[in-house]
């Protein structure tokens, strides 16, 4: 019990396939359904125990933008009139695939409507 509580940290580490590490807030990263399930403290995934997720499909440049979006989403979570975030156009195809990957597990989950990223 104490062990579990200790593992629930405020920040998690996301590692890209080329070795870049991004330390982001857990609440922000949990916008993504895939990350939420990976880092769920109730699960016994190694990611949840180590608070560290390695994303083999994303390189550092894309993951940086994804993390940026996590915080953008966190900031505008409750606003009804959130602005659009700008992305470099050349990254958009990869971001599209990344967004699909980060939500893919959620589609099989019961909360389909939470598809948010």
């Amino acid at each position: 019990m104490a062990d579990e509580a200790q593992n629930v940290s405020e920040y998690v580490t996301l590692i890209s396939n080329d070795g870049y590490k991004f330390v982001v807030k857990r609440s922000a990263a949990c916008v993504s359904g895939a990350l939420r399930r990976m880092l769920d403290p109730k699960s016994n995934f190694s990611e949840a125990i180590e608070n560290k997720a390695t994303l083999e499909n994303l390189n550092g440049v894309v993951l940086e933008k994804v993390c940026e979006y996590f915080y953008f989403h966190e900031k505008h979570k409750d606003s009804k009139d959130a602005p659009d975030m700008d992305f470099p156009p050349e990254l958009c195809l990869e971001l599209l695939m990344a967004a699909d990957y980060l939500n893919s597990k959620l589609l099989q989950a019961p909360f389909k409507s939470m598809y948010s990223i």
Partner: peptide
């Protein structure tokens, strides 16, 4: 509430 999904933003860009 909240901003549009990442996918929508990427497609719009």
């Amino acid at each position: 509430t909240g901003p549009p999904p990442l996918m929508s933003l990427a497609l719009l860009t």
